[in-house]
Design a protein around this nucleic acid. Structure first.
Length: 818
RNA sequence: GCCCGAGUGGUGGAAUUGGUAGACGCGCGGGACUCAAAAUCCCGUGGGGGCAACCCCGUGAGAGUUCGAUUCUCUCCUCGGGCACCA
């Protein structure tokens, strides 16, 4: 790159950034003492997965936005703790290692080193002495400990569950690795289901609490909405259909008001009652259908626009409301994992049932009609299925004419009398399966013993170290590669001493990341996961800024783990993140950056060319931080010019000289107010704009006068410090300060000085701007209207017409209606 | 299909509770400096009309509420994100 500032006094970002990086390290500028800090403020950012590619612009955008917040709080007098770590376990790292045929344990350290280097260059205020890595046995020892706590509290259970199986990879796939029913890596190979016994965390028990607490959290609304939808609470009733043969089939419905229209029943193919209700002549058909369903992969099984399929069992049940017999069918559009795994089908008022009934020629009976029917609206039979709650019942015996909502309640109560119904709340949230039949994760600390059963590894024996094995590639066995290592899994039972067998699955990466924020402040303690006093002092997290891609899994799991630990008395709080803000996404050419699209932007070259400060500010100036934007580098020179201008101003400082007139002071204080407000709300783009505006004003001041008063320029440097931490250090030193600008205090806003002497009031005639006038603030309406009418431009539009109405917004505008 | 969010100059975006649309940048045009260029500095820059003072139009489209709508309501279009056979 060419030297763009040939004069000797110009600012050299590379030299200055290296100098301050060294000085910060030497002076410990970026560290806060966790023990002695007086005003703790925990500023958290989402820790990265240390990929081989290094940090990309999206990471930088996320981290810088959070760093600016932390630096701002520090200038406001808080002791800000801003830690970072590495989420180094998991399928991403493992797959990459498989691709390049290297052991992940060898790969990760160099990736981490690269990340550390990049993070340091970016000028983050990171407390490096508290960094952590999830693959460190000193860390995952406590991940395993948390598993034991869940087991102890009855929140970890083992149960059978379907997994996606690729016959070509000979391994279990995550749902994301299944593309339209085919393996991501083998596009010609269909994925199917296999059943394995796996460990689950019972997060569903906490559904109501997780939902209720959401209302009290200061979180981005988009994130709260996503969590609410994910929990998916619905109210309805469980109704029991009894077959003439005596089999009771409970179904869940959100519309008990439509029970009179239930003309058939459907069971999921996996439903345990299927065999019992199947007539002997239908055995073959039903068996065939069930096998087909079992073959399908989990993802395409649940695709909604697929053609309905199903098979008749040959038997009937009884509608509890009408007493009529209804046929029992098996169909895969009913899912075993939701509700009771069986539904009453109301084809007139449910799209799926409607489609199914049409295909198989089943009865469609309308029982709800639009409320407007009386006024000539829709009549029975038209526009089915009618699914609105705004209707009235028909063909429903004593409930005819009743509104849907009250009918739902009354019908439930009526059936409750015969014990064929009860009100029921359902959630979509599923229990969290944490078992992974993989290598690169913390082993689940369990030993199976023939005499004692499932035995937890004693806490004193933790960590269960992940052995370094070479054959970590998954195989057709469907179990973890660790299951090939008898020397590892053959261990004595901790209870009876007989030879037992370790659990060979490892845990989900989301477990690693569900508690890392608890660990950061306590990294000095190796005999406990987190120290009680330290946690009480620093937690819950004051500010968490991260991407909405983690709105449901990571953030939900973290809340759940915190809740369990709280209930067991390990934590004083039950919600880990007091405030969460979802930042926007940086896209490139309208698409999310990804390796497969080939549109990933790497920050290194930009930092090398322009310096970290310019790049940081440029990313923040691209668009609103909470919304993100399209990355383009066209405007980056604008930021560089801006910093050069500020640098030039520092050369014009006249200590003791350079008067501060009222106008300059007013602009300063208006800027302080604007920038502080914008920073508090994470509106970084407009804060930068305000700083630019103020800089332009100082420039015109400097151009006309002799020198600038330090009182005008020092606040500018301080306000700029969160954005450009290196540059402002250099400026601060230049204007004569020995300490760090980051130890300065945020300029104090003075309302009195910010107040304007004169205000421009706009005059409108019939809503159109016809004039402007400069007046003293606080004018009365009569005075304002009188002045407005005297304005030449206004006069021409009012002429001799009568002013019918005058609207006056004090200090803003006058609108004359003629 | 359902639930969020967004559509503003050539361009990124601003307008914090309904009150001056286009702040601040980028780009572009003109000028200064220079032998020349780069850098820098100054001026201009939504569209249309007019010699001018000024006037008309303009925030995805259409309607509505209002003295006044980028902002609120309804319908529609487009894009982005999430969920997706959840009964």
């Amino acid at each position: 790159m060419e030297d763009q500032n040939p004069d000797a006094g110009s600012y050299d970002p590379q030299a200055a950034e290296a100098k301050w990086r060294a000085r910060w390290e030497e002076r410990g500028t970026n560290s806060v003492d966790v023990e002695s800090a007086a005003r703790p403020y925990y500023n958290l950012m989402m820790f990265p997965y240390p990929s081989a590619e290094g940090l990309h612009v999206g990471n930088v955008f996320a981290f810088v936005g959070s760093d600016i917040h932390g630096r701002f709080r520090r200038l406001q007098g808080w002791d800000v703790f801003e830690p970072i770590g590495f989420d180094a376990f998991g399928i991403h790292s493992e797959n990459y290692a498989l691709n390049v045929n290297t052991h992940p344990a060898k790969l990760i350290p160099s990736n981490v080193a690269r990340f550390q280097e990049q993070l340091k260059r970016m000028g983050l205020m990171v407390n490096w002495d508290h960094q952590l890595s999830t693959i460190d046995p000193l860390y995952y020892r406590w991940t395993q400990w948390i598993f034991l706590k869940l087991l102890e509290s009855g929140n970890a259970v083992k149960k059978e569950a379907p997994v996606n199986w690729c016959p070509e990879c000979k391994t279990v796939l995550a749902n994301e690795q299944v593309i339209d029913g085919y393996c991501e890596r083998h596009p010609g190979t269909r994925v199917h289901q296999r059943h394995l016994s796996q460990w689950f965390f019972t997060i569903t028990k906490f559904a109501e609490r997780l939902l209720e607490n959401l209302k009290t959290l200061d979180w981005s609304e988009s994130t709260r909405t996503m969590q609410t939808n994910w929990i998916g609470r619905s109210e309805g009733a469980e109704l029991v259909f009894k077959s003439p043969a005596g089999t009771a089939i409970p179904v869940y419905t959100t519309r008990p008001d439509t029970v009179f229209g239930a003309t058939y029943l459907v069971l999921a193919p996996e439903h345990p009652l299927v065999e019992e209700v199947t007539a002997s002549e239908q055995r073959n058909e039903v068996g065939k259908y069930r096998r087909q369903a079992a073959q399908m992969d989990i993802v395409s099984r649940k695709v909604g626009d697929k053609e309905k399929t199903g098979v008749f069992t040959g038997t009937y049940s009884r509608n509890p409301a009408t007493g009529e017999t209804v046929p029992i069918w098996i169909a895969d559009y009913v899912l075993m994992e939701y509700g009771t795994g069986a539904i009453m089908a109301v084809p007139a008022h449910d799209e799926r049932d409607f489609e199914f009934a049409n295909k198989f020629g089943l009865e469609i009976r309308q029982v709800v009609t639009p409320a407007t029917a009386a006024e000539g609206g829709k009549r029975a039979g038209e526009d089915l299925p009618f699914i609105s709650w705004d209707g009235v019942l028909l063909n429903s015996g004593p409930f005819d004419g009743m509104g849907c909502k009250e009918a739902a309640r009354d019908i439930t109560e009526w059936l409750e009398e015969t014990e064929l119904a009860r009100a029921q709340v359902q959630y979509r949230l599923h229990d969290w399966c944490i078992s992974r039949q993989r290598y690169w994760g913390p082993p689940i600390p369990i030993i199976y013993c023939e005499s004692c059963g499932t035995v937890p590894v004693p806490e004193s024996d933790l960590p269960v170290l992940l052995p370094e094995i070479d054959d970590f590639r998954p195989d057709e066995s469907g179990v973890s590669p660790l299951a090939r290592h008898e020397e590892w899994y053959r261990v004595p039972c901790p209870t009876c001493g007989k030879l037992g067998r370790r659990e060979t699955d490892v845990s989900d990466t989301f477990l690693d990341s569900s508690w890392y924020y608890l660990r950061y402040p306590s990294t000095d303690f190796n005999d406990r996961a987190f120290d009680k006093d330290v946690s009480a002092k620093w937690l819950p997290v004051d500010s968490y800024i991260g991407g909405n891609e983690h709105a449901v899994l990571h953030l939900m799991y973290s809340r759940f783990i915190t809740m369990v630990l709280h209930d067991m008395g390990h934590l004083e709080f039950e919600e880990p993140f007091a405030r969460f803000r979802a930042h926007g996404t940086i896209v490139k050419d309208g698409a999310k950056m990804s390796k497969s699209r080939g549109n990933v932007v790497v920050p290194d070259d930009y930092i090398a060319q322009w310096g970290a400060d310019t790049f940081r500010m440029y990313l923040m100036f691209l668009g609103p931080y909470l919304e993100g934007g399209d990355f383009r580098d066209e405007g980056i020179a604008g930021i560089s010019r801006f910093l050069d201008k500020v640098w030039a101003l520092t050369q014009r400082v006249a200590p003791g000289g350079g008067a501060v007139d009222r106008g300059a002071a007013r602009k300063l204080h208006q800027t302080i107010k604007k920038v502080a407000g914008d920073l508090a709300g994470l509106h970084y783009n407009t804060a930068i704009s305000a700083l630019m505006k103020y800089t332009n004003e100082l420039r015109s001041l400097a151009a006309s006068g002799s020198g600038l008063a330090p009182e005008l320029i020092e606040p500018l440097i301080v306000m700029l410090a969160p954005f450009a931490p290196y540059f402002t250090e250099e400026c601060w030193e230049k204007i004569g300060h020995a300490g760090s600008v980051h130890d300065a205090t945020w300029p104090k806003f003075d309302e009195e000085l910010a107040r304007a002497d004169e205000i421009e009031v706009v005059v409108q005639v019939n809503g159109k701007v016809r004039g402007r006038m400069l007046v003293a603030p606080g004018l009365s309406q009569d005075e304002a209207v009188e002045l407005a009418l005297a304005d030449e431009g206004v006069k021409r539009f009012v002429e001799d017409k009568k002013v019918r109405k005058a609207i006056y917004v004090p200090d803003r505008l006058v609108n004359l209606v003629v």
